[in-house]
């Protein structure tokens, strides 16, 4: 098998994939099993970076850049901000789960997920003619290819995402804003609290 690989796959590509793949898996394991949320967030950065590398490896340069800027640069930083702001960087007890059967069932479900996804990716489920939006082999650059599709075929979804972002921003402000009157989020929280106190 190894010599098969050696003959068919260029060595730099193979090494890049192996290192990045290991980083992805290690980072993911870190996210899932680190007891400190800060460590989890940092592990996630590793995964995201590795995925960006894999994007480049697959000729998706624009997405790799976006991945680093948006995910590693913005989202994870947001996570860290929240963690610090709330002061919840305590270690979480990872011992016995309070929910009986939750953990074995979770492992089983995850195993099935893994097997099913593999089965899915092996089979050739799609039938009929392939609908090509824009071939990756065209002479223009990757960024330009994506730009063309976004501003032609996917123009309407693109506009929709801009609306979505606006809504998300407004929603976040409404949720987090602290004011004299009760905001929506606070009102709900108060109700939750009252209910838990009743018990």
């Amino acid at each position: 098998m190894i010599d098969l690989l050696a003959t068919q796959i260029a060595l730099p590509d193979l090494i890049t994939f192996l290192i990045a793949g290991c980083a992805v898996v290690l980072g993911a394991l870190g996210v899932v099993f680190m007891r400190n949320p800060v460590h989890s967030a940092l592990s996630m950065i590793m995964t995201l970076f590795a995925i960006a590398i894999l994007f480049i490896e697959q000729d998706a340069q624009f997405l790799a850049a976006v991945q680093v800027i948006v995910y590693a640069g913005a989202i994870v930083v947001l996570f860290l901000f929240v963690i610090m702001l709330l002061g919840v960087d305590k270690k979480e007890y990872l011992g016995k789960d309070r929910l009986r059967g939750q953990r074995p069932l979770a492992f089983l479900a995850v195993l099935i997920i893994f097997v099913e996804i593999l089965t899915l990716s092996r089979g050739n489920w799609a039938t009929g003619a392939k609908a090509t939006v824009l071939s990756t082999t065209s002479p223009i650059t990757n960024v330009e290819q994506i730009a063309r599709t976004i501003f032609t075929t996917y123009l309407l979804p693109f506009e929709a995402t801009s609306v979505l972002l606006i809504i998300a921003v407004v929603g976040a402000v409404v949720l987090v804003r602290r004011s004299e009157e009760r905001t929506v989020g606070e009102g709900q929280a108060i109700e939750l609290e009252a209910e838990s106190e009743m018990k």
Partner: peptide
């Protein structure tokens, strides 16, 4: 978990 178990069963 329950949701995914259901989804997995259907998918399976």
């Amino acid at each position: 978990l329950y949701i995914s178990v259901g989804a997995l069963l259907i998918l399976g």
